[in-house]
């Protein structure tokens, strides 16, 4: 009789542990997905801001056709890849970041442009959006790390293996030049 109680007790404890761990994993995975959606929101915001920026800047910078086109091209490429996998996408977004920073660096040379209220407001929005992108990426990577730790570490790895959890993919910034926040120099 005693043995039955002991075995029953162990089974119940294991069951509780299994449920708790499983729910924890689900929570972390949802957090990761939410973090991914957050990056998406900010990247979309950047796509929306860019046409406005181009419109505003175009009238002032007559001789910078290539820079403007590079930005538009990078934006369209990034947008078309937005349903693709993490790796290709982060590369395209990195390129968009550097194209944008070149444009804003060029804008430095036009004092009239820098006096434009519209441009200043856009500048604030763009700076902030860049920050939000990097912060949401940061949070996404932190979430991916948490999930991966849970999946790989004992004892939760047993539950993860049984229920088939996949490792979260990190949002990496590829080249060294992309690693730097776009040098948007506003004087």
């Amino acid at each position: 009789m005693l043995a039955v109680y002991i075995v029953g007790g162990i089974v119940v404890i294991l069951l509780i542990f299994f449920i708790a761990t499983y729910n924890g994993l689900i929570g972390l995975r949802n957090q990761l997905r939410n973090a991914w959606a957050q990056i998406d929101v900010q990247l979309k915001r950047r796509y929306d801001l860019i046409p406005n920026l181009i419109e505003t800047v175009k009238g002032y910078v007559k001789h910078e056709r290539e820079t403007l086109e590079a930005v538009t091209k990078a934006r369209n490429l990034a947008q078309s890849l937005s349903s693709g996998d993490v790796g290709a996408r982060s590369k395209a977004e990195g390129e968009l970041s550097s194209a944008l920073s070149r444009l804003l660096a060029v804008a430095e040379r036009y004092p009239d442009l820098k006096a434009n209220q519209n441009f200043l407001a856009l500048q604030e929005e763009l700076t902030s959006t860049e920050n939000k992108i990097s912060f949401s990426r940061q949070y996404y990577n932190d979430s991916a790390l948490n999930l991966n730790n849970k999946i790989q570490m004992f004892p939760s790895n047993v539950v993860a293996a049984m229920t088939g959890f996949k490792l979260g993919e990190f949002f990496e910034v590829k080249a060294a030049e992309e690693r730097e926040a776009p040098k948007v120099k506003f004087t």
Binding site: Q31, Q38, A121, E124, K132, Y139
Partner: peptide, 16 residues
Amino acid sequence: NPRLYNIVEEMKIASG
């Protein structure tokens, strides 16, 4: 105050 609002939003994102 768009700047303050943006900064708070940035930190909201960073802190999750």
